[in-house]
Simulated assay, not measured.
Amino acid sequence: MGKKSRRTRKTGNNDAASATATAIAATTASATASASAASSASSGTNQCFHGSTAGKFHPKSEYMKAAQVYFDARRQMTLLDDRDGRNAIRRIYDEDHMHLITDPDFHRFIFAYCTQQYLESNNLKDQSRKPSIKVLLHLGLGYRYRSASTERHKYHRDILTDRGIIKVLVRETKTHCLCMNEGKVIAKTMDIIGICHGCQTEFPKENLSFCSGCQVLKYHNRECQINHWHIHKSSCEAIAKVRIDSNRE
């Protein structure tokens, strides 16, 4: 499959809020399906939970409730323009779920749940489930790779594209099941693309360059990076400081 020059993505707070609302709706619907799956599993049918368990997939489980609370928090975050306000909401969520940050079972549940959503989306042909997958993967990757900033930032970039989502799910579930094997094959046929963080447009990865400060965000040209600087400045300096401090250790 040949590389495509560029594809434009919608931007703005209204679009973000709409995407998150879609994610919440998809999660609510899939929670019912997951409860049915858990019931079937307890009846002896061969249901795969991709490294997690039927009980954790139940809508009333602690893990499922934590996922729903995170969706609600993300929805609130999309309605705020200031970074401090968004960070405060995320900080409150982390403080309320401190015991889950280091819980490997919770990490596995997140990746397992996203895998189930991916499979039910027919390999993302049903794009309505994609927002919920991205939101939860952002949480799961942030917790699982909390002490590995380079990997965490890379994987967070990866889930901006369909190919990256598949790669993450394959990597996180391959030791538990083979359910992502078809997705792995599909990913190999996809264009290798990335997102310009300035204009939110998809480009072939070789056309994107890292920000020299944080070495995390990517841009397709200098002008786009300059225009985005007023948004990126504070996070750029914070990420760069973390990277420098970790290199000294």
Rank of each mutant, 00 (worst) to 15 (best):
G2L: 12
R7C: 05
T8W: 05
K10G: 08
K10N: 03
N13D: 10
D15G: 09
A16Y: 10
S18V: 08
T20M: 07
T20V: 13
A23V: 10
I24G: 11
A26Y: 04
A31Y: 10
A31I: 03
A31G: 00
T32V: 00
T32P: 02
S34H: 04
S34P: 02
S34M: 11
A35I: 02
S36L: 00
S39M: 04
S42E: 03
Q47I: 15
C48P: 01
F49H: 12
H50D: 14
G51D: 07
K56P: 01
P59M: 12
K60P: 01
K65L: 03
A66V: 09
A67G: 04
Q68W: 01
Y70S: 00
F71Q: 04
D72Y: 12
A73R: 09
R75K: 15
T78H: 11
L79G: 11
D81S: 15
D82H: 14
D82N: 12
D84S: 13
R86H: 07
R86K: 14
N87W: 05
R91V: 10
I92F: 08
Y93H: 12
D96G: 10
H97K: 03
M98D: 11
M98F: 03
I101P: 07
T102L: 08
T102H: 14
D103V: 00
P104M: 02
F106Q: 12
A112L: 01
S121C: 12
S121V: 00
N122H: 12
N123V: 04
L124I: 13
K125I: 13
S128G: 08
R129F: 01
V135T: 04
L136A: 06
Y143I: 00
R144G: 09
R144L: 15
Y145M: 11
S147N: 09
E151S: 14
R152E: 12
R152P: 05
K154D: 09
Y155F: 05
H156C: 05
I159P: 10
L160G: 14
T161Q: 07
G164H: 03
V168T: 03
V168P: 03
R171M: 13
T173R: 06
K174F: 03
K174D: 14
T175V: 10
T175M: 14
H176V: 06
C177S: 13
C177L: 10
C177E: 04
C179S: 07
N181T: 02
E182H: 14
E182Y: 02
V185L: 04
K188T: 13
T189W: 02
I192W: 03
I193L: 15
G194V: 08
H197S: 09
T201E: 11
F203L: 06
S209H: 14
S212M: 07
S212Q: 00
S212F: 02
G213S: 06
C214L: 05
L217H: 07
H220K: 12
N221M: 06
E223A: 13
Q225S: 04
W229H: 09
W229Y: 08
S235P: 08
I239L: 02
A240C: 02
D245V: 02
N247C: 08
R248F: 07
E249H: 11
